[in-house]
Simulated assay, not measured.
Amino acid sequence: MRTIVITVAMITLTLIVSGVQAKELSKSHRFACTWGSDIAAGAQRSKLSGVSLYGARKQLQVRRFQQPWMRMTAMGITEQTYNSSSKLKPAAVKQTYYEQCVRHELARR
C-alpha cells in the first residue's frame, strides 16, 4: 500500500513539474511548435487526399512565409510527413507534432 501511495505521489509531482516546464517555454518556441504542427497537419491532409509530394512542395513554394527559415523548415516537415507510413488524421498528427516539439525543446535545456 505504501508503494502505491509513493508511486501516485511521484506521478503527481512529475505532472506538476512538467506542467510548469511547459509554461516556461518562450513565446517564440511555442510559436515555432504551433507553426510546425500546422505544417505537419497540412502535409498529412494533402498526403491523405492524394496530393503527391511534388504537388505539396509546389504549394509551399508559392506560399508566403513570415521568416526566411520557415520555407525550408516547412519543406522538411512536409517531406518527413510524406515519408511516414502513418495514416493518422491531420488533427492527431498536429497534436503529436506539437507535444514532441515541446518535449524536444524542454530536453534541450
Rank of each mutant, 00 (worst) to 15 (best):
M1T: 07
M1F: 05
M1C: 02
M1Q: 06
R2F: 04
I4C: 00
V5E: 09
V5M: 04
V5K: 12
I6S: 06
T7Q: 03
T7I: 12
V8M: 11
A9W: 01
A9T: 11
I11H: 02
T12I: 15
T14C: 10
L15K: 03
L15D: 03
S18I: 06
S18R: 11
A22K: 14
E24P: 00
S26A: 06
S26L: 04
K27T: 14
K27P: 00
S28V: 12
S28D: 13
S28G: 02
S28P: 00
H29F: 03
R30C: 03
R30M: 12
R30W: 05
F31K: 10
C33V: 10
C33L: 07
W35H: 06
D38V: 07
I39M: 13
I39V: 15
I39Q: 10
I39N: 03
A41T: 05
G42S: 11
Q44W: 04
R45S: 13
S46F: 01
K47S: 01
L48W: 02
S49F: 04
S49A: 12
G50E: 07
G50Q: 07
S52K: 06
L53I: 08
G55T: 03
R57P: 00
R57A: 01
Q59F: 05
L60I: 12
L60T: 05
L60N: 11
Q61L: 08
Q61Y: 07
V62I: 15
R63A: 15
R64T: 12
F65Q: 07
F65T: 10
Q66S: 13
P68G: 06
P68L: 08
W69S: 09
W69Y: 14
W69H: 06
W69G: 01
A74F: 07
A74M: 05
A74C: 04
I77G: 02
T78M: 04
E79Q: 14
Q80C: 05
Q80W: 08
Y82R: 05
Y82D: 01
N83I: 00
N83G: 11
N83H: 10
S84A: 11
S85Q: 07
S85W: 00
S86R: 05
S86H: 06
K87N: 12
P90A: 09
P90Y: 00
P90M: 07
P90G: 08
A91Q: 15
A91D: 15
A92D: 13
V93G: 04
V93H: 02
Q95M: 05
Q95N: 08
Y98S: 09
Y98E: 14
C101N: 09
V102R: 13
V102H: 01
R103C: 00
E105W: 13
E105N: 12
L106Q: 08
A107N: 11
R109T: 09
R109H: 11
R109F: 01
